[in-house]
Each structure stands twice: as structure tokens, then as C-alpha cells.
């Protein structure tokens, strides 16, 4: 790789660390060959496909979905959500400072948990209300 930094050799390490060789794990083999991590998407529930194997249609669907998700309000848990203090996806209670996402049906989840689900199915896990339909009605009524 085009890097002007000198790559450390065994010699350099022994100079820097002296006899302190306990830190390096003798069981560690050579690093795995460089590989680009391809993100995996779920164009429909129970379907997992690496990004480079998606059809054009699926790519468009995913791009649209990402856009829609980004329109859903987010917030940070400050203890004010009185009803339902638990994220039903991970079954953990909300902790002060957790990132939350609010769905139009008023159900609240951890942002990370619900975003993962919404990429698979655009419905609220609790009331099964389609999120896009609910989004439209919110826009119309406001």
C-alpha cells in the first residue's frame, strides 16, 4: 500500500518492546488477507444478501427505505417515555442517554434495534401498522 510509514519488522518490535514479549499472543497467526467487508442487506424479511449481489430493483428499494427511515423522528431517552420503558426488540429497559426512534404509531424503540428491523419490513413490530401509510397520514393531518 502507498504508505510512507516504515512497516515495523520483527526487529523494530524487539527494539521497542525490549524483552516485554508477553503482550503478543503466540497463538495469533498472520493477519487474514485484506478483504473489503461487504455490508449485508435484507431486501425482504428472512432474506440476506451482500450489497454487491443485490438486484437493481432491490438497491432502489433499499435506498428508498433508508431515506424514509431517516425521516422518522429520533431522540435520546431522558426518562420521559412513561409508557413502555422497554424496547420490545432487545427486551432491555431504556437507559438514560439511549438513542431512540419514534414511529408514527407512537411506539418507541432503540434506534439501532428498530432501524435493523425497518430495513427488513417497514411495519411496526408492536402494532403491525405499515410505517409508510402512517407516515403519509401524519403528513396529511399536519
Amino acid at each position: 500500500m502507498g504508505n510512507c510509514l516504515k512497516t515495523p519488522t520483527t526487529d523494530d518490535i524487539s527494539l521497542l518492546r525490549g524483552n516485554d514479549s508477553q503482550e503478543s499472543d503466540p497463538n495469533l497467526g498472520p493477519p487474514p488477507p485484506y478483504q473489503e467487508r461487504v455490508p449485508v442487506y435484507h431486501p425482504s424479511p428472512n432474506v440476506s444478501r451482500p450489497a454487491n449481489q443485490l438486484t437493481e430493483e432491490e438497491q432502489i428499494k433499499i435506498a428508498k427505505r433508508l431515506g424514509l427511515i431517516s425521516h422518522l423522528p429520533t431522540g435520546v431517552y431522558d426518562g420521559s417515555v412513561k409508557k413502555g420503558k422497554e424496547c420490545v426488540i432487545c427486551m432491555c429497559d431504556f437507559v438514560l442517554g439511549d438513542s431512540l426512534r419514534f414511529l408514527p404509531c407512537m411506539h418507541t424503540y432503540h434506534k439501532k434495534c428498530i432501524d435493523d428491523w425497518l430495513m427488513r419490513a417497514f411495519i411496526c413490530p408492536s402494532c403491525m401498522e405499515p410505517v409508510d401509510a402512517a407516515l403519509l397520514t401524519t403528513y396529511e393531518s399536519s
Partner: peptide, 10 residues
């Protein structure tokens, strides 16, 4: 168990 699954189920 398939298409109507939701992560809120257990």
C-alpha cells in the same frame, strides 16, 4: 412463524 413474524413476538 414466517411472513407475519415480528421481533415483538417471543
Amino acid at each position: 412463524l414466517t411472513e407475519d413474524w415480528s421481533p415483538a413476538l417471543s
